[in-house]
Computed example of a mutant assay.
Amino acid sequence: MEKIKIIIVDDHLLFSQSLAYLIGTFKEFEVTGSYCNGKEFINSFSADEFEKPNIVLLDVNMPIMDGVETMKWLKANQPDLKVLALSVNDDEDTIMKMITNGAKGYLLKDTHPTMFKEALLEVYHKGFYYTEMISGLLINKLGNNDNKVLLKEREVEFIKLACTEKTYKEIADGMCLSPKTIDGYRENLFQKLELKTRIGLVLYAIKNKIVCI
């Protein structure tokens, strides 16, 4: 059986080598390359011997070119590549930036090996892996096709803007509304969709094809 090919992009050599060793214990996978930063990784695409991986494990915080900037390049140049973000950070802003720029999942580096393997399989077979443990947030409903919520046109417009890196004030300016009105849109949608955070709204939008990531 042909193994699922993985590339690791992480500037911490010890972590990268340890991760490669762990992946080597999973019979379904093999590590075919590792890079120290995003710039080194994207430059590899021009090499004749480069073999495109099935999954990329991408560190968020790296020198020279970090995970967010790398994802922006991949989204523009390799949009079909499946990327699983890895980080020690669980803040909502970082998670949202990675997902809205195309990451198919986000894991903390202290994730249990069993969950890590599950994430790899989910990303490979289903195309994404979003866990309720992301940033300690509980995102239990991401849109069930059998129970879709009817959204107003302006609510959809707000959701699309919320799936960008714009601040709520910038969203208010873009919609020609006051920040207070935007706060009302946000709270009403959180209640209507049974969500708690902006990242939950982003995941809802992706699941229901309100935006294409």
Rank of each mutant, 00 (worst) to 15 (best):
E28S: 06
D110H: 15
M62Q: 06
L81F: 03
H112M: 13
C163S: 10
Y168S: 08
V56P: 01
N61G: 01
V56G: 04
E118V: 07
I42V: 15
K141N: 15
T181M: 08
E194D: 05
N61D: 14
D10R: 00
E170S: 07
P53D: 06
P63R: 06
V211Q: 02
K180F: 08
C36R: 09
M98F: 05
E155H: 01
K5I: 07
L150N: 14
I213K: 11
F26L: 10
F29D: 01
L189T: 04
P79V: 09
N208R: 13
D110L: 01
Y185R: 08
K180T: 10
Y124V: 13
I213G: 03
D80V: 05
N54K: 00
K75R: 10
L195N: 03
N54T: 04
N147H: 15
I6L: 14
I95D: 02
V56T: 07
E92R: 05
N43E: 12
H12N: 13
L201H: 00
T100L: 05
I95Q: 05
I55T: 09
V88A: 15
I171R: 01
M65N: 05
S44M: 03
Q78D: 01
S87R: 03
I6Q: 00
T181E: 05
T197F: 04
M71L: 13
E194Q: 11
K160F: 14
T25K: 15
L120S: 07
C212G: 02
V83H: 11
Y168D: 11
T167G: 08
M98H: 02
P63Y: 14
Y204R: 05
F116M: 06
A47D: 14
G143N: 06
L138Q: 08
L142R: 07
D173S: 15
G102D: 10
E92W: 03
L14F: 11
N101T: 05
I64E: 12
K209C: 06
N54S: 13
K75T: 13
K117G: 03
